[in-house]
């Protein structure tokens, strides 16, 4: 399969990346090439193979329910492009 221009647009929208028409066209070619490479995986018989999530074969570690973090609003906000009165500020969200 190839990734046509409309698909690039759709995927770029999902990923929240603005692409110009020229970029979209180049990306369509590049992504299609990558996809073509990926599709060689279809040669592999994976019947009955459980998809692998992690190479780690242990029990997931758990932590105790204790408050050990937080209380650092100034540090949390320090890198923000815009903040006021302890809040992050963003362009208005319209529903």
């Amino acid at each position: 399969m190839s990734i046509d221009i409309n698909t690039v647009r759709k995927v770029a929208k999902l990923a929240r990346i603005r692409t110009t028409d020229a970029e979209t066209e180049v990306l369509s070619g590049e992504l299609s090439k990558i996809l073509k490479m990926i599709e060689q995986l279809n040669e592999v018989n994976t019947d009955g193979v459980e998809p692998m999530t992690s190479v780690i074969e242990m029990k997931m570690p758990e932590r105790e329910d204790k408050v050990t973090d937080g209380g650092i609003p100034e540090k949390i906000l320090a890198n923000a492009p815009e903040h006021t009165a302890g809040f992050f500020v963003v362009p208005k969200v319209v529903e």
């Binding site: 973090d69 609003p73 949390i76 009165a85 302890g86 992050f88």
Partner: peptide
């Protein structure tokens, strides 16, 4: 208070 109960993980 706003963002007072936030760890870098939550942010």
């Amino acid at each position: 208070a706003p963002n007072a109960q936030v760890s870098p993980i939550d942010a």
